[in-house]
Simulated scan of single mutants.
Amino acid sequence: MEKFKLTQADVDLLNTNKGLTAILSKEPYNLEKALRYVKYEKRLKKLQVELVRLQSWAIEEKEKVIIIFEGRDAAGKGGAIRRITERINPRHYRIVALPKPTVDEQTQWYFQRYVNQFPKAGEIVFFDRSWYNRSVVEPVMGFCTQEEYEVFMNQINNFERMITESGIRLVKIYMSISKREQQKRFEEIKKNPLKQWKMTPVDERAQELWDVYTEYKNKMFEKTKDGPVPWKIIKANRKTYARVAVINHILKSIPYDKNKEV
């Protein structure tokens, strides 16, 4: 295995406050990991500047933007959304993570409660899970009937065509992790008293039902491949890589003014 070598530029990065913090925060000390993290933080800051530009453009041009996040439980959807929204204006974005439907919502058109959360002019809405619950989680867990599932699958491409043709910009991100990585993250969550609230009954069965989730996920991709908006699949085993990849995709997907002053 090739020995890790530091360049002078690497040494300079590690000799900053962030670099020293990264080195000393974990034992045993690992210069390679510390350097990778400092580079990630530096890259993230530049990308967040671009996100501010994107939001400023959306506000000025009265654009309406929806960004949906799907993926396995513990894939890092919430963490990615936090990094995206960390520096942008909180008055012009919303994060939507809907609870299970109420009794009234269960009698409505399935998409209605999601449509009620759609953006107004100049607003970005992030869905931490979306209407795609009905394509994977609900059928796997028995939360919908086979007929409800089939109706959804028949309507989804037309629904998203209506969204995009109405002038809303739609971005679809799927964060993908391995079964082993998911198990590791679940174990970390269970051990951390500040994160234990994240584990739900659905999460508890995610490993057991891994292959069934895979089957329905593949059906979802197959059905929507001819839809108006393609999925962007992000490999998310490494959280820092995934967050950078997610932001890059958003910036490439929305034609904002890259020269706008912030």
Results as ranks from 00 to 15, higher is better:
E138W: 09
I163V: 15
F159Q: 00
M141H: 13
I163T: 12
T164L: 09
F186W: 06
G142V: 11
M141A: 11
V140A: 00
E150V: 01
V171G: 04
E150I: 05
T145S: 15
K198E: 11
R205Y: 03
Q183I: 14
Y174P: 03
E181P: 04
S178W: 14
L209I: 02
K191E: 02
I189R: 15
V137N: 06
R205Q: 15
S166G: 07
M141S: 10
Q146Y: 13
R161E: 12
E187W: 00
K190L: 15
Q182I: 06
M153H: 07
E187F: 08
S178N: 08
Q155K: 11
A206W: 09
E160L: 03
K172C: 08
Q196A: 07
E147K: 13
V171P: 02
N158D: 12
I189D: 01
T164F: 13
M153A: 00
K179G: 07
T145M: 11
I177E: 01
E187N: 14
E208F: 14
N192A: 08
D203K: 06
N154S: 09
V151Y: 11
N158M: 06
F143S: 04
R134T: 08
M175Q: 11
I156L: 00
E204P: 05
M199R: 14
Y149H: 08
M153R: 01
R134V: 02
N158E: 13
P193R: 01
F186Q: 01
I177G: 02
M162C: 03
W197R: 08
S178I: 03
I156F: 02
K191M: 04
L170D: 05
Q196N: 07
L194T: 15
W197S: 13
E187V: 10
M141W: 09
G142Y: 10
V137Q: 01
E187C: 02
M141E: 13
S176C: 04
S166L: 01
P193N: 10
Q182P: 03
K184Y: 06
Y174I: 05
Q155A: 09
Q196R: 15
G142L: 07
K184R: 14
I156Y: 00
I163F: 10
L194M: 15
K198R: 14
E147F: 03
V137G: 02
N192H: 02
K179P: 08
S166Y: 06
F159G: 03
E208W: 05
M199N: 05
E181T: 10
V151N: 04
K195W: 00
Q182E: 10
N192M: 01
Q182V: 05
L209K: 15
E160Q: 10
I177Y: 05
E148V: 04
A206Q: 09
I177D: 01
P139W: 04
L194Y: 14
E181R: 06
E160G: 05
Q182A: 09
E181L: 04
N158T: 11
N157I: 03
E150C: 00
W210R: 12
T164R: 11
I189F: 12
L209F: 14
G142W: 12
K184E: 05
N192L: 00
R185G: 07
E208D: 13
C144A: 12
D211M: 06
V151W: 05
